[in-house]
């Protein structure tokens, strides 16, 4: 916790973030959202800004394994938490995460602007429900909007992803 001028709860700008398993030292404005920090300070532009208002899901990242809208999280509020973005999903050797692999095999998504968010939402959801029905999966990833409306194919891929994740 930053403690400047001795006042309880005061916040320092220079903080360390745990992003994709790396400790990143970064100067963060008080009014900065996690999406902005990831995109403009850490170069992680896979996290997309579709609406910046928590109503499209393109910016979904995992904070301590929980899917959150990075556009609507103050970066300072995730100090000490484990942040995972789309860039941190594949193994260092490039092996895709089972969810990513399922998307590639199923040729899921169209313009794919929503894809990183959908993938992260699915990864997070499968941690809480590794063997969902198609309906449960749809509910689980319903906080993500696809304007190409490739929902059917996305669900196809993500059901395969669930199988792959369990097998993995």
């Amino acid at each position: 916790m930053g403690q400047n001028d001795g006042m309880a709860g005061a916040v320092e700008r220079l903080i360390t973030l745990d992003v994709n398993g790396q400790q990143r030292r970064v100067d963060v404005l008080k009014n900065e959202t996690l999406a902005m920090t990831l995109r403009y300070k850490l170069g992680l532009t896979g996290t997309k800004l579709g609406c910046d208002r928590a109503e499209c899901g393109a910016c979904t990242v995992l904070v301590d394994d929980v899917p959150r809208y990075a556009c609507s999280v103050l970066t300072h509020s995730v100090r000490g938490k484990k942040i995972q973005s789309i860039e941190g999903l594949a193994a260092p050797d490039g092996t895709l995460h089972p969810v990513q692999q399922a998307v590639v095999e199923g040729q899921g998504f169209q313009c794919a602007f929503c894809m990183p968010g959908f993938v992260m939402a699915t990864v997070g959801f499968l941690k809480t429900n590794p063997a969902p029905t198609r309906a449960q999966l749809a509910h689980g990833i319903s906080g993500n909007l696809c304007r190409c409306a490739d929902y059917n194919k996305i669900l196809d891929c993500m059901m395969v992803a669930a199988d792959k994740s369990r097998g993995a």
């Binding site: 403009y40 992680l44 532009t45 789309i86 860039e87 895709l96 998307v103 590639v104 040729q107 794919a112």
Partner: peptide, 22 residues
């Protein structure tokens, strides 16, 4: 069916859209 060559870039977040350039 086949896998389009842009798909891995898309699914790993490496695909650059207009606002991703710095």
């Amino acid at each position: 069916n086949y896998t389009t060559p842009d798909l891995v870039a898309k699914v790993t977040g490496k695909a650059k859209y207009a606002e991703d350039f710095r």
